[in-house]
């Protein structure tokens, strides 16, 4: 009860309680899906950087590396399949 009264007061003075939060959240979700159609160049850059980072720790088969954006109804996931050839014993930072 106390809370709902406060809501009314907050709304009266213009706090973010209204429908715009719904709009923003729906927009965010829709754009995640819309933007999965990213350019091949961007994907290639992402792959290259992934290879660099991971190679600091394990030896990977770069030719067999697969990175894709996969979308279902509720989320979009970056799915990577990275065959490991050899795990390094110690790390030598670049």
């Amino acid at each position: 009860m106390k809370r709902s009264v406060w809501d009314v007061i907050a709304r009266f003075f213009g706090r973010d309680t209204g429908s715009k939060m719904a709009a923003k959240e729906r927009l965010r979700l829709v754009l995640v899906h819309d933007r999965t159609n990213i350019s091949p160049q961007l994907m290639e850059m992402l792959k290259q950087e992934l290879v660099q980072v991971i190679s600091n720790y394990v030896e990977i088969d770069e030719a067999a590396l697969e990175v894709n954006l996969e979308s279902s109804d509720h989320q979009v996931a970056l799915v990577a399949n990275i065959p490991v050839l050899m795990v390094k014993r110690s790390i030598h930072p670049a």
């Binding site: 213009g14 706090r15 309680t17 209204g18 715009k20 939060m21 709009a23 923003k24 927009l27 754009l31």
Partner: peptide, 17 residues
């Protein structure tokens, strides 16, 4: 007025997105 009442996305919301 609607922005102030939280019923319309604000300039910052849109630029942010």
């Amino acid at each position: 007025r609607m922005v102030r009442h939280g019923d319309m996305m604000s300039i910052e919301d849109i630029i942010d997105i």
